[in-house]
């Protein structure tokens, strides 16, 4: 693969107060690739995404997006530059209707009508519920709504954090089908997941974090082989 990676994280450190959570993370997402970032709780995955998306400041280290040094950029600037972040938990506004949520997605630079059109085409169920408050949707539907932002904002890089959290496996499969379709359009994706296998299915590369560092990288099948040990303990 040629050229500059869409995302390059170099020796990144970050801390909450004096407590260091990221201890020198190196990570690379090639253009057009899907990278799965796995690892147990507390490994620092979500913090890493927060720093990349500009929601938190690093203490040292660099982030390059498509070769451009973006350290210190604000989340709203990054959003308008083509970074779409879907944070952990339900990343929708629960007290707004589905349609109002979609309306706000037009801040990424696409017209509201276009947003509606794309979102409803992908998820007809959202159209049925367009006047319903997002908070009253089922977990799966809320994540569809969240994913609609990834679909409609036409991102250069998509960051997905724990899409599967609290959802039944069947729904997770369905959501990841959509992620796979987004990937097929050439969007580069960094996906953080606990459901290792589901994420690995659509990934081109995988990385494992523990203790604030990336401790293993490789092909999905290599990583899959060691995941159970890392997550459930290797004592067996």
């Amino acid at each position: 693969m040629s050229g500059v990676p869409i995302l390059e994280v170099i020796d990144l450190h970050a801390a909450y107060g004096r407590i260091e959570v990221l201890r020198g993370v190196n990570l690379r997402v090639p253009k057009g690739a899907v990278v799965a970032l796995l690892g147990p709780n507390g490994a620092g995955k979500s913090t890493l995404l927060k720093v990349i998306s500009g929601q938190m400041e690093q203490t040292s280290g660099d982030i390059h997006m498509a070769g451009v040094h973006v350290t210190g950029a604000k989340p709203d600037d990054l959003a308008q530059l083509g970074l779409t972040t879907i944070p952990e938990g339900r990343s929708v506004f629960p007290n707004l209707t589905v349609e109002e949520n979609l309306l706000l997605m037009s801040y990424a630079g696409v017209s509201a009508d276009q947003v509606f059109e794309t979102a409803y085409a992908y998820f007809p169920r959202l159209h049925e519920r367009r006047y319903q408050l997002a908070g009253t949707l089922s977990g799966g539907e809320q994540q569809m709504l969240a994913l609609a932002r990834a679909l409609t904002s036409d991102p250069a890089l998509l960051l997905l954090d724990e899409l599967s959290m609290g959802l039944a496996p069947l729904i997770v499969e369905e959501l990841y089908d959509t992620v796979g379709r987004i990937a097929a359009t050439g969007v580069s994706i960094l996906v953080v997941e606990q459901f290792a296998q589901t994420a690995l299915k659509i990934a081109d590369h995988a990385a494992v974090m523990t203790g604030g560092r990336v401790v293993a990288t490789g092909e999905p099948n290599e990583i899959e082989a060691i995941m159970a040990d890392i997550v459930l303990g290797g004592a067996a």
């Binding site: 390059e8 190196n26 690379r28 990385a207 490789g218």
Partner: peptide, 8 residues
Amino acid sequence: DIDDTKVL
């Protein structure tokens, strides 16, 4: 601690 950039 594998140097991941090489792998990726």
